[in-house]
Amino acid sequence: MTRTRHVEKTLEPKWGEELTGNYAYQEGDDLMFEILDYDRGSVVGDLLCTCVIPNKADGFLLSSSKDLGPKTTGYNPTLRLRIQVTAFPEPPPRTTILIRHADGLPPADANGKSDPFCSVQLVGKPFSRSSTTIKARTLDPVWNETLTDKHRYEVGDAISFKVWDYDKAGGNDLLGEYVLEGPHFHKPGGFDGELNLQCPDPKYAPVLSVKILVRELEEAVQVSASEATEAEEAET
């Protein structure tokens, strides 16, 4: 619970205040408002009127007047307010991308090794970029890392994979890249295999092992399998 400041000697108070942060709001919750008369001798104050605003699917109620239920009959008070949900529950990821390992990367450092990491991005959507951790001094890094939440995949999207050498002193060096088109993984079972990376140095032919699944397709397969099992059990 949180509250405004009190406004003295008025039946038409104007607060102009924003209240945030203390609600512990969860999706589906209703909000209750109470108007109280401030009394210096009381911790709580006298209840004047109250109202409950039900959860709205659109997430906000903009500058609306809400009838208040007065404690004393003969009055019809209203409350003018604005409600906005500023943090919605994160939707589940539409894809899961497992970056297993890379082999045969070119050396980028004086010690004959590289410090590789892999970046993943939906082509044309730079906000979707995610990266693995950095593996020090190796040409055959093993990550076994799953990247999900930033992808916001849509049907028809292609996925860009780039392996870089991390450089503390300046720009990272590109070691190899590959663009995987949607039809190769937008199917039940997704894509599970190696990508032949295009390397700036033609003397090297590095590969990147990945697994990509589209959540909606996998869930559809599970539902179909469950329905088939239930049908078989019903026949027996």
Rank of each mutant, 00 (worst) to 15 (best):
F60G: 13
Y38C: 08
K113I: 02
D192M: 09
H186T: 11
D37W: 05
S64F: 02
S224I: 02
V52E: 07
D109M: 07
S226Q: 15
S128H: 01
G16C: 05
A110R: 06
Y204T: 02
E227I: 12
L180E: 01
I83R: 03
V120L: 14
D109K: 11
M1S: 15
V52H: 00
V123C: 05
S63A: 15
D157I: 04
T86V: 14
P183F: 08
E235R: 15
A108C: 07
T146F: 03
S64T: 12
L174M: 12
P70Y: 05
V210S: 06
D37I: 05
P54Y: 01
L122N: 05
K125S: 10
G182A: 15
K135L: 02
C49N: 04
T95N: 01
Y23W: 09
K150C: 05
T10H: 08
L180P: 04
G69N: 07
W15Q: 06
G69C: 11
R137L: 07
V43H: 03
S209M: 02
S65F: 03
E8V: 15
L36N: 08
V179C: 03
D149I: 04
F161K: 02
R215N: 14
L175W: 01
E216K: 14
C49E: 06
G59R: 04
E235V: 15
E181R: 14
A57I: 09
A110H: 00
P70I: 00
K211R: 14
V221L: 13
Y204C: 06
R3D: 13
L98Y: 01
Q198E: 07
N172H: 12
E8F: 12
L47I: 06
T20G: 13
Y75K: 09
L122E: 05
D67K: 13
L147K: 05
I159D: 04
P106V: 01
K125E: 07
E218F: 10
M1C: 06
P200S: 06
P183W: 01
P92V: 14
T2I: 15
L180W: 03
E34H: 07
P89H: 10
L105T: 02
N55T: 08
A87H: 14
Y25C: 10
K187Y: 06
L195T: 00
S128V: 06
